[in-house]
């Protein structure tokens, strides 16, 4: 029977808490920036400008069909060869934004394409200008339609961020690995990490639910 000893974990709770905070910060920034990339990507893809569409297609296909681990290695170890050197944490953020941007582009594109042509024509008939049409008639209902897939992608992003410790970025997983290297209480540490990641995912999920109620709960016929 394995004897649990959580003392090493309790002794270093501040280390883990700091790691968790960095994971939250990293994920939040990646979500916000990644959302921006996704909207731009989706708009570009549905714009009808062919070369732009091809470029975005290449980006989406390359990122969605390669492992995140390879992408982050490439950004951290490969880019310095062309003179682009950045800190592990910046490289981690960039890799996460590029990764979630590709998935988000596809998700939001499907949302935009779910808007019936007639709805846009109705907007035009009401005398809305193109910016207003995009804002109220296209993107808002589009986001509402794909909101669950987008937010689960964001939560997946937060869990994926545990990989960034391979380039020595500081996050919850790397705090756990450092603690493990010092105390060898692997089972206790990874059990604690599991609980923290689970609680973080739950918190994000709750927050997304609240955002949904605020922004997307207007009356709709469907």
């Amino acid at each position: 029977m394995y004897q649990f000893n959580f003392q090493p974990v309790f002794d270093s709770l501040d280390l883990l808490a700091y790691g968790a905070w960095l994971t939250v910060k990293l994920s939040l920034m990646a979500m916000v920036l990644g959302f921006g990339v996704s909207v731009l990507g989706a708009v570009g893809k549905t714009s009808g400008i062919k070369p732009l569409r091809w470029l975005i297609d290449i980006y989406v296909e390359v990122i969605r069909n390669t492992p995140f681990l390879i992408q982050i290695f490439f950004i951290y170890f490969g880019l310095p060869a062309v003179g682009l050197s950045m800190s592990p944490n910046s490289a981690a953020l960039l890799a996460l934004v590029i990764n979630v941007g590709a998935y988000g582009t596809e998700i939001i594109r499907s949302g935009i394409e779910s808007i019936p042509k007639g709805q846009i024509e109705a907007g035009r008939a009401l005398g809305l200008n193109p910016v207003q049409i995009f804002r109220y008639v296209v993107i808002r209902p589009a986001l509402r339609n794909i909101y669950p897939s987008l937010t689960s992608q964001f939560i997946y992003l937060m869990l994926t961020s545990s990989v960034v410790s391979v380039i020595s970025a500081n996050d919850l997983a790397s705090a756990g690995a450092d603690l493990n290297a010092r105390t060898f209480a692997s089972f206790e540490i990874y059990l604690t990490l599991t609980v923290i990641y689970f609680l973080l995912a739950l918190a994000f999920s709750t927050a997304f639910g609240m955002i949904r109620r605020v922004f997307f709960s207007y009356p709709a016929s469907r």
Binding site: S165, V166, S168, S174
Partner: peptide
């Protein structure tokens, strides 16, 4: 801190 010698060396070489 990197997970193995190869990655740590890679950080130095790059």
């Amino acid at each position: 801190r990197f997970d193995d010698d190869a990655t740590a060396v890679q950080a130095l070489m790059s």
